[in-house]
Write a protein that binds this DNA or RNA. Structure first.
Lengths: 204, 204, 204, 204
DNA sequence: AATGAATGAGGCTTCATTCAT
DNA sequence: GATGAATGAAGCCTCATTCAT
């Protein structure tokens, strides 16, 4: 009486993940709908039952990626009370996300960044708002720093600028790791970085 | 009566610069050959007198960009003897390049990075070897750090890791600036960053 | 406990009528099977339980439309004995059919005509034989005219040609009405037309 | 120094005519861009150098068709002073256009009508305004009738309604001819029709 | 009997590249 | 050398039809 029953939400997610794998492998621009369909193990036309088109998939992947990170980050941060521990957790956590799935999605970041930058003014695709994501991210860290200052652990400092620096260092290191996964020790570099960072802000 | 004398090399360069402007404006993937021709003020077919195709232009732009930076960086560094001054110059110089031409070419970096990452193994397009560029870059900074250590100015430290961190911070800050040029003070953030960085490595 | 009893013939008819409504609204070419299913309030797949495909529905609608007209016309004509009355009834009746259902199906005529014309040779789809329908239609009118001539009411004339003219005028007026329902008074135009037509053929 | 020189306007026209031939042969809906390209003896992509897309070609053909008719009609009418002669010329002329090119474009009318009707409200494609064309057409004829009335040749009558009837008869006869070119004598039917029409309006 | 999820052939359109002038 | 008209491979998307449930 009824046709095949599918969990539409779940299948949509599966397609999106397949798309992300293809994006990561060959870049969003060179990813063909056929590639995505094949990777998802479905027919070309089926994709359109779940997405409006290629841009829609990209936007979904974009938001999924950053939302996942944001959610996890928020959870991580609130799991501790000590600002230093919080920062430590934040960095470790960021790396873990990046390295998870055997770093499968790391390459995507470049496409997300590239597209996110290009769409920074476009009112049309406000779905992709990379700047807002960074603003949020800085706010998280800024709050931790302010906390640390108020509790006398950190020196008085430009919390917003320092947040930018910490994020920058993390992004930049990840970038270098993507280019040379085998030879670049991301974990170690990040540890050294955070060490120096904390050294510079903790009251001696 | 000699034929019109055109400096082929110069014209090729002009086309490449036109291409970079288009790449920056709409992304390499969405840049059409027609756009480039129009921007360069020439006919579409003429481009093929100077380049083999779109990929060729991209590769040329890629190498030009990084070569320019590398050359200038090398020149900058050697203009001083003091490691601290050298690092200062390096950072200031990097920003200047980035902000030059009113930051016209900043957006391109994302495409370069994206493509550079994707081609990290590709034996075919060894022309684009982003990793090697980063290796070189780390080497420059590493050398400065080593110099500083030997002359007793800097503490003993993992020079390679510290180089990575410095580059990472610079890249990451630039990224944040691209996304919000009006509201993000790149110069200030970089100054604060370098200040903290030097603080951490200079012997007290 | 007998299974739900559905009058297959009736449901088929319902689907066809739904299809006609969609055809009328957006044209047969742009009518999607989904539209028809939605309009009929059933599932897309169900249509195929009653029809072989879209062409089948179109053919069915085509024949239904003209058969309905033909049947009704025949009934109308035989309800009177006087040739003049017959022609009057014929015209009034044709208009009524056209204007019925608030002219819902009027737009369809164009698609029927277009497709009917295109298939004028096609041995395959002999189901759609618009020319035959017109031949029949002319025969009806021709017979009435002959009747009138024999009973001395009408002047001697080319009955076949005059039939064509009457049909032509009716078709053409309907066409003009379709294009401007609000401003074109079809009833009045038809009355004037028939008045002139009868004037020309009735013995003075 | 310069590429192939082409008369763009002329080539555009050629493509449009090729398209009309294809439209006539298989209907606008079933006409593929490939068919048009082949018919025009050019590559598929070349069409897009002259038209924005399929709809654009259709609209161009539509307007060309009616504009041609309108222009020629206007010229024909003004070539005489006598209302009766004018009407005669108008009818003969209309048939000639229809039968010209061996009636190659006759079938198109159905698609034009169908599409013109469907677009009667669409503000978007005001390019295709069939109703306006009919309004103009009725005006031409109406003016002739008024002329005849004023000069005492025609009886007083509803000029607008009579115009509609004349156009209707012409359209309707053409329609019947399209369906059975071999067996239907359009010229004769039109003559008989006009004869009756004039009989009805000329003062005895 | 009824359904709608899945499909892929087929169509439209884009655009890098070629080449006649 | 320069050009832009011409091209067709390639990609995105539509939608009639199938079929498992």
């Amino acid at each position: 009486m009824a046709p095949r029953i599918v969990n539409k939400e779940q299948k949509k997610n599966e397609i999106m993940l397949a798309a992300m794998r293809v994006f990561a492998a060959k870049g969003a621009a060179k990813a063909k709908m056929t590639d995505i369909a094949t990777e998802a193990g479905i027919g070309k036309g089926t994709i359109y039952e779940y997405f409006h088109g290629k841009e829609d998939i990209f936007a979904a992947a974009f938001n999924y990626h950053f939302q996942t990170i944001e959610d996890a980050t928020r959870a991580t941060i609130t799991s501790s009370k000590d600002p230093v521990t919080k920062l430590n957790l934040l960095v470790q956590h960021s790396l873990r996300i990046f390295l998870s799935d055997s770093g499968e999605f790391a390459e995507i970041m470049m496409d997300f960044w590239a597209e996110g930058i290009r769409n920074k003014d476009s009112k049309i695709l406000k779905i992709i708002d990379l700047n807002q994501i960074y603003i949020n991210y800085r706010k998280y860290i800024s709050d931790i720093l302010t906390e640390g200052i108020q509790s006398g652990i950190f020196r008085g400092l430009d919390t917003n600028a320092m947040s930018s620096v910490l994020i920058a260092a993390l992004d930049g290191l990840s970038l270098q790791w993507i280019m040379a996964r085998e030879t670049f020790d991301l974990q170690k570099a990040a540890d050294i970085m955070l060490d120096g960072f904390l050294n510079g802000i903790i009251k001696s």
